[in-house]
């Protein structure tokens, strides 16, 4: 008999029927993004934070409404962060905004190839776990770094 939990993805104790995490960047339009979400049926949507520009018409309201309409779990990320402190700050802001402890942790060491900074990554992961976050670190396949992230309390790795 087939186990009905077979195929489920479990992240930090939360079960998902889909194993797909869908990014929300680089869609030509909100409607195209909405169509992609409907077709892909992902477990979660990954999103970012950006500074508001004074006087900008783009306040994020349209995107925010789309996120709420999809009713999908949200996985915020710390894209663009180059230090542990910056990533921790961004994660805290994301937690307040999206009301989730999940965070895709990115600490970038190289702007050109987006290689993670392993030192900042482990430092940020350690602190964020202490703050109650459920950290999904964006890392390389470096076994030692992966081991350090797991020792810091990460239950999921994103190499």
């Amino acid at each position: 008999m087939r186990n009905r939990n077979e195929g489920q993805m479990v992240l930090y104790g939360q079960k998902f029927c889909s194993r797909l995490l869908l990014g929300t960047a680089r869609y030509d339009s909100p409607s195209l993004l909405a169509d992609a979400i409907g077709a892909a049926d992902p477990a979660m949507l990954t999103v970012s934070l950006r500074r508001q520009l004074a006087g900008s018409k783009d306040s994020g309201q349209c995107f925010w409404n789309l996120l709420r309409d999809t009713q999908r779990p949200i996985l915020p990320n710390t894209a663009g962060c180059r230090t542990a402190r910056e990533a921790i700050k961004t994660a805290c802001m994301a937690r307040e905004l999206f009301q989730t402890d999940l965070i895709k942790l990115e600490v970038i060491g190289d702007e050109l190839n987006l290689q993670p900074d392993p030192f900042g990554l482990v430092e940020a992961a350690t602190e964020l776990v202490k703050l109650g976050f459920k950290v999904l670190p964006y890392c390389t396949e470096d076994w030692v770094v992966c081991r350090r992230l797991m020792d810091a309390g990460c239950e999921v790795l994103m190499p």
């Binding site: 995490l21 990014g23 949507l45 999103v47 950006r50 508001q52 994020g60 996120l67 990320n77 895709k104």
Partner: peptide, 9 residues
């Protein structure tokens, strides 16, 4: 810094 949700990931 004042931030808002945006596409990314």
């Amino acid at each position: 810094d004042i931030v808002f949700p945006t596409a990314g990931g």
